[in-house]
Structures are given as C-alpha cells and as structure tokens.
C-alpha cells in the first residue's frame, strides 16, 4: 500500500556528555570525522536519505546535549520520535551505567504509544581506543535484559559499524512506523508527502 511513499523518520541520539553522539551523527551523514565539534547545547540535527527495503527513507537525526542538567529538557525534541539511539563510551563505565536513566527519561518524556516495544538501539562507541572498560558481553547482557535491544560496537572515528547501525535504526524505526500506519491511531505521526528534508532542499511548499 504505502510502500513507495517517502517516509521521514525521526531519530533521537541520547547519552552522556562526550560519548561521541555528534561524531556518530556526522560520520553517518557526512562520512567524516573531526575532533573540532563544539559541545552540543540544546540540540542539533542532520538529515540523510537512506534506502531500506526498497523504500526511500529520510532520516532526521537529532543530536542532543549530554550533560545531566540538560537531561530533563529533552522533552521538546523527543516529540514524535521513531527511534531512540542510546550511546555510551566503551572506555567509560559511567556512561554505560547512565543508559538506564537515559532510557527511562526518554520513555517518560516522549511517552510513546507502546513503551515496551519502542525501538531503541544501543551503540558502544570508541571501540578504536585501547583502554576499553566495558566488555561487549556485559553490554550485550544488559541489552538482552531490556527486551533484546540491538547492540552495536562502533567507532565514529574509524567508521566502524556506523553505517550498519544506522541501517538497523532506520529499519526498526520503519517497522514501528508501519505498525502505526496499520493501526492508524495517530495519523499525524505519519508524514504524508513529507518533503525531502536533506540539507540541499530547495525550500518549496508543503502540503500539510
């Protein structure tokens, strides 16, 4: 039915300060790594078109501030999210421990329709570094305990697994989206005729 429609997926990246959220987003969208990012204040976002199962999907990726005092301010950005990516730094155990609270906070603030099945993806970033402190097994275990959240070990610096992870993110978000269409409970969440939102969009009119 709607399989040939363009779809806009809103993806939120959360995680402690300095785990590499901005870098991951930039690596995925712009295919480059830089160590010259300012700390993200409030939020920032980029868009990218991907093809998932023959469908053209526009991913709108929202990068958020990581410091704890901003955690409760995310609500403005969470609205209408299709997938939530939780990032931690494999060299910093504390960032791993915070995942739980990021997840809870997100579920509370975004209050998705079906919190138990809302798609999350966990990324353990900075695997290129030597001083690893969180084992893959430990992370995996936790992800399994949380309703089998997909887990990827990534390096934004060396572009390890980034593409793959975001493909999964898009696919899972899309699955959620299709389900919503089936139920058709919240039609406003489905972006009909959503325009191409990538950076080179030519500011045209919109049907909504």
């Amino acid at each position: 039915m709607s399989s040939r429609k363009k779809v806009l997926l809103k993806v939120i990246i959360l995680g402690d300060s300095g785990v590499g959220k901005t870098s991951l987003m930039n690596q995925f969208v712009n295919k480059k790594f830089s160590n010259q990012y300012k700390a993200t204040i409030g939020a920032d976002f980029l868009t990218k078109e991907v093809i998932v199962d023959d469908r053209i999907v526009t991913m709108q990726i929202w990068d958020t501030a990581g410091q704890e005092r901003f955690q409760s301010l995310g609500v403005a950005f969470y609205r209408g999210a299709d997938c939530c990516v939780l990032v931690f730094d494999v060299t910093a155990p504390n960032t791993f421990k915070s995942l739980e609270s990021w997840r809870d906070e997100f579920l509370i603030q975004a209050s998705p329709r079906d919190p138990d099945n809302f798609p999350f993806v966990i990324l353990g970033n900075k695997v290129d570094l030597d001083n690893r402190a969180v084992s893959a097994k430990r992370a995996q275990q936790w992800c399994q305990s949380k309703n089998d959240i997909p887990y990827f070990e990534t390096s934004a610096k060396e572009a390890v697994n980034v593409e793959l992870a975001f493909q999964t993110i898009a696919r899972n978000a899309l699955a959620q989206e299709t389900e919503a269409e089936l139920y058709n409970e919240f039609p406003d969440q489905i972006k009909l005729n959503a325009n191409d939102n990538s950076r080179n969009r030519d500011g045209d009119n919109c049907a909504c």
């Binding site: 959503a194 939102n197 049907a207």
Partner: peptide, 13 residues
Amino acid sequence: KCCEDGQAMQVLS
C-alpha cells in the same frame, strides 16, 4: 511555510 520542526530548525540554522 514549514510543516515540521526539523524544517523550521533548518531554516533558522
């Protein structure tokens, strides 16, 4: 003219 938040953010940024 924007119809969703991302678009508006884009305009402003």
